[in-house]
Design a protein around this nucleic acid. Structure first.
Length: 442
RNA sequence: GUGCCUAUGGUGUAGCGGUAACACACGGGUUUGUGGUACCUGUAUCGAGGGUUCAACUCCCUCUAGGCACCCCA
């Protein structure tokens, strides 16, 4: 006997097993609902794009493009990459299909897998799933507020206590001024910075604000803040965003350290973090986003096409749901289990199954099983409320046996009256279940 | 990319230098008509390779895989 290779998921990839599906179904359902309520249309994009789309938008200095992309050359010598995020693709699609001739702003959303070649750990996979909302073609701060609101709502609806960390990083007019002020400040305190931050100083000093190195904290805390160096336009914009957020009661905290790792952001930036203190500090961002007024032009669209958006990580959302022991709706309970005995009964059961399914019962069967014992065992495992038993005897008599799985009481009824009988019995059971509170699942 | 930890049947664990135990799950049967609450039974070359030893699952090394934290981000 030769030894065969044991296959397993590729590093950083995860199977979403049947037991996990309820979380995904729940979240997708909730997102679709929100999208409909707030007027977002779904868009689905290819998993791959031109590599240059990402290097131009996300930015070559960002970690994502620098070392985390799944890039390869295809057989036609095109350089393509698995999408590491959605925004660039959505904007590409917006431009490619001339969506600017649609009523603006255009509200789009999508969900699906993204890929980043990173070292996996808790809540971080190489293939992970994002929820993504974008509003393109509107600069008004009320759209920022609405995007932040929806990002918040997703978390609120699943029962998570989150705070939106918001900031403004200015625009291409006022950011250079701030960067200069910041650089001057950092230069003075350079000796106190961590090694990593010293490197960041050369590449992208803004990111030092995002540093979690212990040595850096003091310097960061006393650093000049972007919000104090915004131009009038950016300042007004930011103030209005905050006012709108107050109005719709979205809990937020001003956080000058939210600078984001993608290059295309301008003005508003935000991250979603759990409200409790212990979870605040570390890599617990449930999502993030912001305004990107220059991106459309940057990748070849019409100049001055403003936009805002956010992305949320589904795996992290589910991780939170589980750690907080929050309930998600589970699959509908099994109403009826259909057991059969003998060749004739089998054939008849096949037909009966169709009828009952069409009548709307949630029904399971034991067609492939032989003994009644095995079938009732299955019925028990499936948690069926009732079992129907159809055997040789019942067929001859034109009857069928109904067994209440909870009490174990069974009764022979007229075969023709199955549907009304089942309805009657299930209704009784249902009221008990309702009073007995909704069944929870882990 | 850096650091630490782990590796025994499907799952969760036990074990000792002398060739593996338990629970659950799953499959089959005891009864060709009765489950949750009987009984029997099946399923592991102890991650891979090498070394120490009379002897290794148990000690050492290498590799591989997984996990966690950092970095970064979702």
């Amino acid at each position: 006997m030769g030894k065969t290779k044991n296959f397993q998921t590729v590093k950083g990839m995860k199977d979403i097993l049947p037991d996990e599906q309820k979380y995904w179904k729940y979240i997708y359902g909730l997102v679709d609902n929100l999208a409909r309520e707030y007027g977002f249309s779904r868009i689905d994009l290819p998993l791959v794009e031109d590599t240059s789309l990402y290097s131009r938008s996300v930015g070559t200095s960002s970690e994502i493009v620098e070392k985390e992309m799944y890039s390869f050359t295809d057989k036609g010598d095109s350089n393509i990459s698995m999408r590491p995020e959605f925004t660039a693709g959505i904007v590409r699609s917006y431009i490619e299909h001339g969506m600017l001739d649609k009523p603006q702003p255009l509200k789009l959303y999508t969900t699906g897998p993204c890929f980043r070649y990173d070292r996996p750990q808790s809540g971080r996979y190489r293939q992970f799933h994002q929820i993504n909302f974008e509003i393109i073609g509107e600069a008004d701060p009320i759209t920022d507020a609405q995007i932040i609101q929806i990002a918040f709502k997703i978390n609120q609806l699943v029962g998570l206590d989150v705070v939106m960390q918001v900031n403004s990083i200015g625009c291409k007019d006022c950011r250079p001024d701030y960067e200069k002020v910041l650089k001057d400040y950092l230069k003075k305190h350079r000796s106190k910075l961590s090694e990593i931050s010293k490197k960041r100083f050369i590449k992208n000093p803004l990111r030092i604000l995002d540093s979690k190195e212990k040595e850096d904290q003091e310097v960061i805390d006393n650093a000049p803040q972007q919000v104090d160096h915004l131009c009038d336009g950016c300042k007004n914009h930011f103030i209005q965003v905050l006012e709108y957020l107050d109005e719709i009661e979205v809990p937020y905290a001003l956080n000058p350290r939210i600078v984001r790792g993608l290059d295309y952001y301008s003005r508003t930036t935000f991250e979603i973090t759990p409200a409790s203190d212990e979870e605040q500090g570390r890599q617990s961002a449930l999502g993030g986003g912001g305004r990107y007024d220059d991106l459309v032009e940057l990748i070849g669209g019409r100049p001055d096409t403003p936009a805002v958006g956010f992305a949320s990580g589904i795996e992290r959302l589910i991780l939170q749901i589980k750690s907080k022991d929050l309930k998600v709706p589970s699959d509908p309970e099994v109403d009826v289990f259909l057991a059969q005995l003998g060749i004739e009964a089998r054939k008849k059961a096949l037909v009966l199954f169709e009828e009952l399914k069409d009548a709307g019962f949630n029904i399971r069967e034991g067609f492939s099983k032989k003994g009644l014992k095995n079938q009732l065992e299955l019925a028990d495992k499936l948690n069926a409320k009732l079992s129907l038993i159809l055997g040789q005897k019942e067929i001859l008599d034109g009857t069928i046996m109904v067994r209440d799985m909870e009490g174990g009481i069974q009764e022979v009824i007229d075969y023709k009256k199955i549907i009304p009988e089942l309805e009657k019995r299930l209704k009784k059971v249902e009221t008990i279940v309702v009073n007995d509170k909704i069944k929870e699942e882990k």
